[in-house]
Structures are given as structure tokens and as C-alpha cells.
Design a protein around this nucleic acid. Structure first.
Length: 433
DNA sequence: TCTGGGGTCCTAGGACCC
DNA sequence: TCTGGGGTCCTAGGACCC
């Protein structure tokens, strides 16, 4: 068979969050496992065994609580420090296989092989799967083809057909056609719950039906997104290769639902101040700054009988900044403008927009700042960051965030240890001699 | 009692300009 | 009565993803 010039592999961890817990609690390997969203609200990750007993994505926790209490399933609160660290380990194993790795999400990456003299791509896929398994304990699937969309499709097959053992080589065009013909169109990456019914109405039921559309027709009827999808399915690479993506975020958001409804401006402000300082911290870690941000707050849309309100406001400052104190001041002013008395608030958030590199930020022609003022701020935040990096998050925090337990704080009743990122949480291994 | 958080890209429509 | 056409920029909202 002729060797394609560029081959793309898509790797993702199976039930990633659940698998992270299983690495450190092997007893969970014998049980259906679910992970809850923030506030222990609903199920956001499930092992196949949990899916099999009919627990859907997004199921509210109270509906499965009984099963947990009966010991039939295991439930954990989400533990992002653990997932983040396991993700880094996963990605660094992948980087051993090719220099071109695009981290697509916390549990997924594309690998590009340009000019690799690989004889057997399926064997290569199994080698990746095996090494990740041995070095991190995570089970993964690997899909291999010539474009990102085809590689995703291959990985879908790897998951869907157990006989593949989790690895599918879809470089052969004939094999591509066969798979497309038996795959429902709504399984395709990029076809969501709005588009799928529209397509089906028009008789486009399988991925093959979709791939048979003329690209120009796909664009006219839907949008350029769908046109690109059609082209990718036909083997034409038209999605960008973006290895830098992770460091080049355009927005950074921090928002949370409150543990309990909150009605006072003071409490909302405590929460918002916490989100502002977290978002600024993230941005500083990336060496970036922003001149625009948005804050919002809203009531609980599920409580139809209560008065509903959604307020939001875009903030703009003359010069891009990553300083927590500057953004706190602006957000406080903004909150005064959009806060309304008499509502039960359930969520608030802060989003940094149009993030640019701190070194290339534009000066403001019309504002003259005393040099002392600007130079002192970054130093303060630097000190804050370095202390928090060394002694853990929230060792130092802004006073506006409050220091007492509050109604807005998250519920996390089933939290597991941060096995890999906190010395005090390291697992203990005992052995009999 | 109990329903997540963090992103990207595209399009349509309005404001504004020449 | 008559009142262009084309371009850019911005924003809000929709759709998708994990």
C-alpha cells in the first residue's frame, strides 16, 4: 500500500476523570464510577459500566445517590488538580512519539507524523496505547488517518467496536468509506444536537451521506464549518494545525454556581472578587494581559417561580493589564451598575477578553501615569503569585474574597486526595514481607 | 432541597465611513 | 416624488466542542 505523506493520530483517554481516580483507587476498577460537576450538582463523567446501567450525562446527583449509598456505584467530586497533573503526564508520553503534538483538550491530543517511515500504523497505535498505559495507568483510544476529522472518526470506531482493542488505522480510503457508511451522522465531530435533526430531515443519515455533499453546497446550506468538515472527510486537510493553542487563549473565564442562593451584593462581590483574582492569576501565568473583560451574574433558571435576572457588562481599561487590583476595582464599579436588589442569585463570573501578549501591549496616548504607580503593581502581584506557587493556592488572597465559610462556596462532599500535586495527599503503599 | 465550567468559531445586523 | 453601493468594524447570539 502506498504510504501517505502525513498521518494524523488522535488519542484520548477513556472516561478520563473516572480513569484518574481508578489509577489511585484500584478498587474502583471493579465498579461503575461517576464524577460530579462542581457543587456536586450532576454527573459529568462516567465509566462504560455506569453508562450501561442507564446513567446519562448530566444526571442530577440526587437521582443516583441511592445507588451510591447501596454500594452499587462509586461517586467522586471533581478533582481538577489531579486531572490537570495526569493530563500533563499523558501529553508528555505522547511527545515521545513525535515532535508535533497538538493538545486539544485535557484528555485529547492530535499527533502528526510527517515523513515517518512507519510500516504498520496499527502497530504504532498500539505502541502508543501501551506506553501511555504503562507510564500513566490511563486507558486510551487511538484513531489514525490523514486528517483530523478522519482521525477522530477512527477513534470513534476504536471506542465503539471492542474488537478493535481501542486502536483503528483508517488510512485506507476503502476502509474509510465502509466506516462512514455505517456511522450515523450525529456521531461526527462537529455535528451537534441542532444540526443533526436538520440533516436527517434532508435525508442525510450517515457520515457517508454527509461526505457526499458538494463542499459548495454544504457551505450554502449550512456554513463554512460544515464545508470544511466535508473536505476533511474527503481527505483534504483544512483545519489548522495549532500546537501553540494552549498558550494563546483569547479568553480566560472564571465562573461558578453558588453552593446556595445568594441575595446580598456583599456576598456576590466576595464571590466575584475570588473569580477576578483567579482569572488574573491564570493570565499572569501565561504572561498575558487584557484591556477588556466582562462580568455577569444571574439567578437560577431552573427555579421558574422565582424572579429571573441576568446582568452583564463589558469593562474596558485604557491599557492592557494583568493586575488583580486594577481588575478588582473595575469589577467592583461594574457590579454596582448591574446588581439588582430582590433576586436570589445562583451564579456569577468574570471573563478576560481579547487577551494579548503583555510584552506587545499598546501604550495609551492620552494617559500619563506616574511611573511609580505602574511599577509597584506588578511587583505586588509577582510576590502574591510566587508565595501561592510555593505554599499552595490561596495562601495569600485578596481581602475582598472574604475569609469565612460563605453561602456561595462550592459543595464538594466526595472529594478525593490530590495524590500527585500535594505532599500531604501522597498515596501510601503498604506491602507484606 | 438537589441541574458544571471553560473554551472556539461563525453569522447577522447595526454603526459608521467614503 | 426623490434618497447608492460597498466596505469595515463591532457585538450579540448561536452552535459546537470537551
Amino acid at each position: 500500500m502506498k504510504q501517505p505523506a502525513t498521518v494524523i493520530a488522535h488519542c484520548d483517554a477513556n472516561s478520563f476523570y473516572c480513569s484518574c481516580h481508578r489509577v489511585f483507587e484500584p478498587a474502583l476498577l471493579r465498579m461503575p464510577v461517576g464524577v460530579l460537576s462542581n457543587n456536586d450538582g450532576c454527573v459529568i463523567a462516567r465509566t462504560p459500566e455506569l453508562k450501561a446501567i442507564g446513567v446519562a450525562m448530566g444526571t442530577p446527583f440526587f437521582q443516583v445517590r441511592r445507588l451510591m449509598e447501596q454500594g452499587q456505584i462509586a461517586i467522586r467530586s471533581s478533582n481538577y488538580p489531579l486531572y490537570g497533573d495526569m493530563s500533563e503526564r499523558f501529553m508528555s508520553v505522547l511527545e515521545g512519539f513525535t515532535p508535533e503534538v497538538e493538545v486539544y483538550s485535557i484528555d485529547e491530543a492530535f499527533l502528526r507524523f510527517t515523513g515517518f517511515p512507519v510500516e504498520n500504523w496499527e502497530a504504532q497505535g498500539r505502541a502508543i496505547q501501551q506506553k501511555v498505559g504503562r507510564w500513566t495507568g490511563l486507558p486510551i483510544g487511538v484513531g489514525i488517518s490523514t486528517t483530523k476529522v478522519l482521525a477522530k472518526l477512527a477513534n470513534y470506531a476504536a471506542k465503539h467496536y471492542p474488537a478493535t482493542g481501542g486502536v483503528v488505522d483508517l488510512t485506507d480510503p476503502e476502509r474509510q468509506k465502509r466506516l462512514m457508511a455505517i456511522t450515523p451522522v450525529d456521531e461526527l465531530w462537529g455535528i451537534g444536537r441542532r444540526l443533526a435533526p436538520r440533516l436527517k430531515e434532508q435525508g442525510i443519515l450517515t457520515v457517508r451521506d454527509f461526505a457526499n455533499l458538494e463542499p459548495s453546497q454544504a457551505k450554502r446550506q449550512y456554513s463554512v464549518t460544515e464545508e470544511r468538515l466535508v473536505r476533511e472527510l474527503r481527505g483534504e486537510n483544512c483545519l489548522p494545525w495549532d500546537e501553540e493553542q494552549d498558550g494563546n487563549k483569547h479568553t480566560i473565564m472564571c465562573s461558578r454556581s453558588f453552593g446556595l442562593p445568594v441575595s446580598s451584593e456583599k456576598e456576590v462581590w466576595e464571590a466575584l472578587a475570588t473569580y477576578v483574582s483567579r482569572a488574573c492569576e491564570k493570565m499572569r501565568r501565561q504572561g498575558k494581559a487584557a484591556a477588556k473583560a466582562q462580568l455577569f451574574l444571574r439567578t437560577d433558571p431552573f427555579r421558574k417561580d422565582d424572579g429571573q435576572y441576568h446582568g452583564s457588562l463589558v469593562l474596558q481599561i485604557p491599557q492592557a493589564s494583568a493586575s488583580t487590583s486594577i481588575w478588582l476595582r473595575e469589577t467592583h464599579k461594574g457590579l454596582k451598575r448591574i446588581f439588582r436588589e430582590g433576586y436570589q442569585y445562583r451564579k456569577a463570573g468574570f471573563v478576560l477578553l481579547d487577551i494579548g501578549s503583555q510584552t506587545t501591549e499598546q501604550g495609551d496616548l492620552f494617559t500619563v501615569r506616574p511611573p511609580s504607580q505602574e511599577s509597584s503593581k506588578p511587583e505586588l502581584t509577582d510576590v502574591l503569585d510566587s508565595i501561592n506557587n510555593r505554599f499552595g493556592n490561596n495562601t495569600l488572597k485578596v481581602a475582598a474574597s472574604g475569609n469565612k465559610p460563605a453561602r456561595w462556596h462550592m459543595k464538594q462532599n466526595y472529594l478525593s486526595p490530590r495524590y500527585t500535586t500535594q505532599w500531604s495527599d501522597l498515596a501510601t503503599v503498604r506491602c507484606k514481607l
